Amino acid sequence: MEQTRRALLASVATGAAAVAGCAAPESTDSSAGESPYTRVYNEVLPSVVVVHVAENGRKVGQGSGFAIDPRTIVTNHHVVDPGSEVTVRLADGEWADASVVGSDRHSDLAVLAVDSSVSVSETLSFVAEPTPVGAEVVAIGAPFGLSESLSRGIVSARGRSVQGLSRFSIPAAIQTDTEVNSGSSGGPLVDLAGDVAGVVFASQGGNVGFAVSAELATRVIPELRETGSYDHSYLGVTIITVEPQIADANGLDRPRGVLVVETTDGGPSDGVLRPSLTDSDDADSDVDDGDNEEPPANGTEPTPPSPDEPAPEQPQSGSPAIPTGGDVILAIGGSEIDNTDELSRVLALETRPGQTVPIRVLRDGEEIVVDVTLGTLPDA
């Protein structure tokens, strides 16, 4: 892989076009019997590292990572968070000490600086355009500590909100059926041109894995390199997608948008967006504030019920009443909002803290526009 084919992440941050994009290669070396997976593996592997994390001389974690310049490694926040002593093993077998330059729990990304005496021979760049659903991708990393492993699959979906390390979700994530296991975290999910579509971070088992999208990574990583942290936009609401039952309960003509269930006291939306009825004295408007089905804050979908739970149409004793009376968010700025995943994506990729955004809502049967000045996502 030619070094000139790999634009440094800094050039991505300044708007320079990244090479390759998400197109599949036009041809493979069939005469030599080399599959496209073998080719991309051989090209990408020199950029991939194994990350070891220790505390007081005791190993406490391990994951994967990849180089975006000869001495800069991208991995996951949760890979390096357990300890303070970080070492990386390069593809050529050489070990190097590394330090955490910046880390962000809300995107689960971290940037490492490798000891100045060592450099990675090859580097990777992020895709210039989002990798489409159905495109073939491969993950290279160290699942279960088995370094230099490749798994292949496709992009199964885009724009997912996935539960992160806090009560907030990781937005705009890529879903893939590529095998993802413990130790794969932090490794690159690359297209068949060898460019990074996402940073692997989680698995839900079976054929469902997730990666931080290149769109989010290229916003976060430059600031992690420069300042050590990244501030995410915060709307300060608890919301839920308007499905047919919620539309009926709220007298809507059809399901659309997301319903504001609660607003955070003193938060950006407090006094601007109208929350649903939650008066504990009103038995018909109680919202369960236990640990089960209340949607997490700031634009994440509630966790779906497990297969062992009763089907939604079955009566459930003590189940919370459907929230009613709150604003239904239909659009933020010029972006239509169809569900909570889309609201999280828009906040993450199209806004910044301190920005005042127009929000179109449905209130009392009438569409109105209100302005909200976004805050910064809290650490908790």
Rank of each mutant, 00 (worst) to 15 (best):
G21R: 13
S30C: 08
S31Y: 12
S31E: 14
G33R: 02
T38D: 09
N42Q: 13
V48C: 10
G63N: 01
G65H: 06
H77K: 03
V79N: 03
G83S: 08
E85S: 01
G93V: 03
A96G: 09
A96S: 11
D97A: 11
V101M: 12
V137Y: 12
V138K: 09
I140L: 09
E148N: 13
G153R: 10
I154F: 13
S161V: 07
G164H: 01
S166A: 11
S166E: 05
T178N: 08
P188Q: 07
V190M: 14
L192K: 06
A197W: 12
A197H: 06
G205T: 12
L216N: 07
E226Q: 14
G228E: 05
Y234H: 06
V237R: 05
G251Q: 12
L259M: 07
V260G: 00
T264Y: 13
G271N: 02
R274E: 14
S280Y: 14
D281S: 15
D282N: 13
D282P: 00
P302E: 01
P304M: 06
P305Y: 00
E309N: 03
P312V: 04
S319F: 05
A321R: 10
G325K: 07
D327C: 02
V346W: 11
I359G: 00
E366R: 10
E366M: 02
L374E: 06
